[in-house]
Design a protein around this nucleic acid. Structure first.
Lengths: 204, 204, 204, 204
DNA sequence: GATGAATGAGCTTTCATTCAT
DNA sequence: AATGAATGAAAGCTCATTCAT
């Protein structure tokens, strides 16, 4: 692989990340090529040297965002051995990302919206699917580990997957409701409530 | 006495619902006045006889959509007396709405996105907040009823509210993940799993 | 002539005067049929019972405005016998109209603009021409009277006409400059200066 | 170093002049961006690369038009030493501009109209005021020169200013009446009449 | 005769995209 | 390879005009 090619790929990522920054402020249509170019510190026309269209840029930006998420989750779960702690760390980190600033949930919701509006777009169908699978697997694996170590009580691999999916769905859902309701409840208490029953009743 | 009698309020609702149909396809910015007019079977200019601006149309459409939701939930919970059944019916109906066609979740996600992007817009802040509160209350009340009848075991009103919020958040989250992942899991089983532990472990 | 016909004509004048009021605020395009209807206290559609189009309404409004002006000038010059006084009264009245409120000059300028933009429009070419001629004649006649009485010294009827035209042109011009310059000079002094030399040097 | 070199300022002037051409046909509201773009031989969107809005374009166009006028007057008065000749040249040139084609007076009247409708708009209030002052000063200075040389007889600087203002107002007024009346008098004779008494009676 | 609901042409403005440099 | 000037399609919106009542 030549140095040139590496540069091209790196610049693609830079532009895509700049696009994602803009994206998070107001969804797909808030992204103007002028703004992205500005954020990326390049000329407007230059974007088209790296992406064929705005749609492709958005798709790439979303994919890179998801890749980053997956990588983050992967790293996270490696840092600790105790399954319960790993689970708590994952949840804590996820909440930290979403509560640190509102733009994170806005980004997530915008991503979801674009994906749902373009489910037929096979450009990203596979990568997105993989991303979901990877995240499920990561969490399910933690639970499986706990089961093997005798810390968690589950009924087989399928059960672990279900618990993982539900946990992830809940985390997204609760953040969504939290912001959409104007912060009318204590999100930490809600998550604690979920985790308490998950760890004390379901997995024990 | 007017020269031509038109049910202004009904027409407003008709146009708003047409807008919501378009809205579900791709969020706020997919709603072009041309498209809405087409859906509603009227001329572009006519929309402006009923709404001052696109923003007002969107806001009204969302509010009407939410009103319909609340009304649906209210009717639902009145049909049955047994708390557990009422809870199951509510969940079943919600899932039915979301699984019948994908546009329902797209509408929901689009609504969330607009709300999150316009949290400061006091045009709809209050109604939205009320809508959330109403839905929480409806579910919490079912649980409270169960508690009073000795069917559910909870620790006070606060606990009921927490359970209600988490349930609603989970339902939205799981639908989101279901569609976004391309239907890679059995959503019914996931919900059943959640409900099983909710009813068997948490509330028993 | 039937009562109905008189009513129609009167209503035409009412609507035209309402149009002129709006007209004075910002020229031709500030006149919206909705506004005119509002000012006239009638429905929008009703205007079209009396005028075929907005253009026709504007034309009629301008003609009526001019007719009013001419009538005013005619009445004015009849009230006094002394030619010099009649001239002073005419000038004084004209200035009074223009200095009472700014909208008068705005109306005048708007009228001029519409006329200049539509000189080919034979709908009003003749009436406008007559209006100018009438005003010139009125002033010229005063001067002729003065000449016959030995009060003014002029060189024939042509001279009187020239003086009249110049006086009228000057009055419009000075008002225009006065407002356009933001009132940076004393308009009364300017007119006095003109009148002084007109009466002391030119006509003496 | 830019990829494409364009004289931004020159193009601004080109567009503004194209706007002024359209402007002269029917005032502010006759100026459609489509028409201006057509006149300027560019695309509609290109105008917005040089002006932020239509209002800004109109304002700029008017200011440039006035600047041209002032510059013309300035150059004119430098070419000759004899005050009387300078005055005659100024008047002659002004008439030449206005009689060469009708659009000049239409432009002037349109400018007046916009100014009168936007007297509060400080975007152009100051420049316009300066323009008026400059023109008054230019003429008044010629008269003062004549006074110093003993050619003209005036009563102080204030008198010179009054004469200048009246002359300018008269010139605009007479052109206005000339065109509005459909050319029913000999404008040259009218101006000669004014000038004759100005030079023979007032200034002698 | 009077009305105002309905409409589409046309307005100003934005912006993804192209392309000459 | 990189740029930004140029553009036209399409957006939200206004309004003169029509027409059913």
């Amino acid at each position: 692989m030549s140095a040139k090619l590496v540069d091209k790929d790196q610049k693609r990522r830079d532009i895509a990340r700049a696009a994602m920054e803009v994206f998070s402020r107001g969804g797909m249509d808030a992204v103007s090529m002028r703004l992205v170019a500005g954020k990326a510190g390049i000329g407007k026309g230059t974007i088209y040297e790296y992406f064929d269209s705005k749609d492709e840029l958005i798709a790439a930006a979303i994919l890179i965002w998801i890749e980053d998420l997956i990588e983050g989750a992967r790293l996270l779960s490696q840092q600790e051995v105790d399954p319960e702690k790993r689970l708590r760390i994952f949840v804590g980190q996820t909440m930290a990302v979403f509560t640190r600033d509102q733009s994170a949930i806005q980004t997530a919701i915008s991503v979801f919206q674009v994906i749902l509006s373009n489910l037929d777009n096979n450009l990203w169908f596979d990568p997105i699917q993989s991303a979901f699978k990877d995240t499920w697997k990561t969490i399910a694996q933690i639970i499986m580990d706990g089961s093997e170590k005798g810390v968690f009580r589950i009924q087989g691999r399928e059960d672990a997957k279900k618990i993982a999916i539900n946990l992830l769905a809940f985390l997204d859902g609760i953040c969504l409701h939290y912001y959409a309701s104007g912060g009318r409840f204590d999100i930490k208490e809600q998550v604690d409530h979920y985790m308490k029953y998950l760890l004390e009743e379901t997995l024990k």
